[in-house]
């Protein structure tokens, strides 16, 4: 395993306008990590607003683990199998996980599931160790809409820093999920 690089802080952004709900990310992730059965580490929700009006609008909203800075799953994990790494990734150490499932209902983003094949909790790992091999996460690599942007937000030259800067410069809407919960998520939503 690659140890965490303290100088980095990994994050992801979804450019919501570019997501077409093709679900390629879901399957790429499933293939990369051999996720069993009916589970996925990332999902796409469909937002229809308003429900029925003359001018219907529909948005596709990906989600996965937010790698929270103040992660409830880390707080409640009795074994410290769920932990926050120095590079910002919230990871699960499968060797320590007893499979108590407590972290699953603790996550306000419903990002976790129980991996029945391994008997442990499972969720997005930001594709560790893939990202240390110079690759993008599997979901980012495959995304035909180029809706997903990933990188180190400490590095102003990273794709994600550029995307966030671009969004700020152009005054796009940028938000994270449920700021009110104090979890300090690291996945940004960008919408024109």
């Amino acid at each position: 395993m690659y140890s965490a690089d303290k100088t980095k802080k990994f994050a992801m952004a979804y450019i919501v306008d570019r997501c077409v709900d093709c679900k390629a990310c879901m399957v790429a992730c499933k293939a990369e990590w051999q996720i069993p059965d009916n589970d996925f580490r990332t999902h796409i929700d469909t937002g229809i607003a308003p429900a029925a009006t003359e001018r219907l609008s529909m948005h596709f909203l990906p989600h996965q683990c937010n790698h929270c800075d103040d992660a409830p799953c880390v707080t409640v994990c009795p074994t410290k199998a769920s932990h926050k790494r120095a590079d910002g990734v919230v990871d699960i150490d499968n060797r320590k996980c007893v499979g108590c499932r407590y972290c699953i209902p603790s996550c306000p983003y419903n990002a976790r599931f129980f991996n029945n094949q391994l008997g442990v909790a499972d969720k997005c790992t930001f594709c560790l160790p893939r990202i240390y091999d110079g690759l993008m996460p599997a979901c980012v690599t495959t995304c035909p809409g180029r809706a997903r942007v990933f990188g180190d937000i400490n590095d102003p030259e990273s794709e994600i820093s550029k995307a966030l800067k671009d969004a700020a410069d152009n005054r796009y809407r940028v938000w994270t999920l449920r700021k009110d919960l104090g979890t300090e998520p690291n996945i940004y939503y960008i919408q024109k």
């Binding site: 679900k23 790429a28 293939a31 990369e32 690599t141 495959t142």
Partner: peptide, 26 residues
């Protein structure tokens, strides 16, 4: 075969695969 990934230089898809393409392994 563990994983399929798009060829970055292929003008058909420039490195991307759809959900079905990714499910070719299955």
């Amino acid at each position: 075969v563990k994983k399929l990934e798009g060829q970055p230089d292929c003008p058909s898809n420039y490195g991307k695969l759809c959900a079905k393409g990714n499910a070719g392994v299955f």
